[in-house]
Amino acid sequence: MTTQPAYVPVQKSYYPVLVALFVAIYLISNITSTKGITLGPLVTDGAFFLFPAAYVIGDVLSECYGFKAARRAIWTGFFTTILAVIAFYIAIWLPAADFYEHQEQFALVLGLVPRIVLASLCGYAIGQLLNAWALTAMKKRTGERSLWQRLIGSTIVGEFGDTLVFCLIAAPVIGITTTADTINYVVVGFIWKTLVEVLVMPITYAVIAWVKKHENYVPASSN
């Protein structure tokens, strides 16, 4: 008599996929943000074009799965980043092989400045938790109505907290030293990230609707 091997059943859900994308975007943004960028009169960093996507996915997680599930994803990204930084430093510290000619470049790219890491972790945790909290708090009052208000309102709260904390801590490290440039950095980052989420709101709407449909989402009763 043969017996079938036992396995832990995998639940059909898109939550793990969204969390994986969420964490990947944050990890990539941590590396690209170490480069200061000037676009005409605007001062920003190399993560400006990707990082707003983390808030889009954060909104999907909060709207579809609730604050606790969003918080779990946020802390997953937080501790994964700490693990990545530790791994980067260990890899840099290990002696390079004789044939490896790029140790300096490797260390330059992955040797994240501790202050940048601190800025990123603090900004990320504060911003994302504020975003998730604001969206779910608004949903308690509005129910399924006015999704656009929840998306914009939570983005304003979360992005402001994130941008302010990150920029104030990280600005000197990437070469921003004057008060005017620091204000520019904060304002431009906040406006840009908020504007991006507003522009991609139709995509956010579509993703939220798709996830709710395929996750057997049941709206709360209005009674």
Score class of each variant (00 low, 15 high):
Glu144Leu: 10
Phe79Leu: 15
Pro41Ala: 04
Ser13Gln: 08
Val85Asp: 14
Ser29Gln: 11
Lys139Cys: 10
Val43Ser: 13
Thr3Gln: 13
Asn131Tyr: 07
Leu164Ile: 04
Asn30Glu: 03
Ile74Arg: 12
Tyr124Leu: 07
Ala96Asn: 05
Ala87Phe: 15
Val165Pro: 00
Asn30Gly: 14
Ala87Cys: 14
Ile31Trp: 02
Leu118Val: 09
Gly46Met: 04
Ile92Phe: 12
Leu151Met: 13
Met1Asp: 07
Ile203Asn: 02
Asn131Phe: 01
Phe79Ile: 15
Glu101Ala: 08
Trp192Val: 08
Leu147Lys: 13
Tyr124Lys: 11
Lys12Ser: 10
Val117Thr: 15
Arg72Val: 05
Val113Gln: 15
Tyr26Glu: 05
Asp162Tyr: 06
Gly161Pro: 02
Pro41Ser: 14
Ala119Phe: 08
Gln149Met: 15
Met1Gln: 10
Ala137Met: 13
Val85Lys: 06
Ala209Leu: 01
Ala206Phe: 07
Lys212Glu: 13
Cys122Asp: 00
Glu144Ser: 04
Trp192Ser: 10
Thr76Asp: 08
Val19Pro: 05
Val17Asn: 09
Ala170Ser: 13
Asn184Val: 02
Leu27Pro: 00
Ile82Ala: 11
Ser221Gln: 04
Tyr65Trp: 07
Gly111Arg: 03
Ala91Asn: 13
Pro5Ser: 10
Pro202Ile: 13
Ile208Lys: 03
Thr194Pro: 02
Arg71Cys: 03
Thr194Phe: 15
Thr177Asp: 14
Ala170Lys: 11
Ile169Gly: 14
Met1Glu: 14
Ile152Gly: 00
Leu21Met: 10
Ile92Lys: 05
Ala137Arg: 06
Tyr205His: 12
Ile152Tyr: 13
Val56Phe: 11
Arg145Trp: 14
Pro202Leu: 05
Thr142Leu: 15
Trp210Ser: 08
Ile208Val: 10
Ile31Arg: 02
Ile152Arg: 06
Leu61Glu: 01
Pro9Cys: 03
Ala70Trp: 07
Phe67His: 11
Leu135Asp: 00
Thr3Leu: 11
Ala69Asp: 14
Asp45Phe: 01
Cys167Gln: 09
Ser221Cys: 00
Phe166Met: 05
Leu61Ile: 02
Phe166Pro: 02
His102Ser: 03
Ala96Pro: 01
Val117Ala: 14
Leu42Glu: 07
Pro52Asp: 04
Leu168Ser: 03
Gly46Arg: 15
Thr44Trp: 02
Gly36Glu: 01
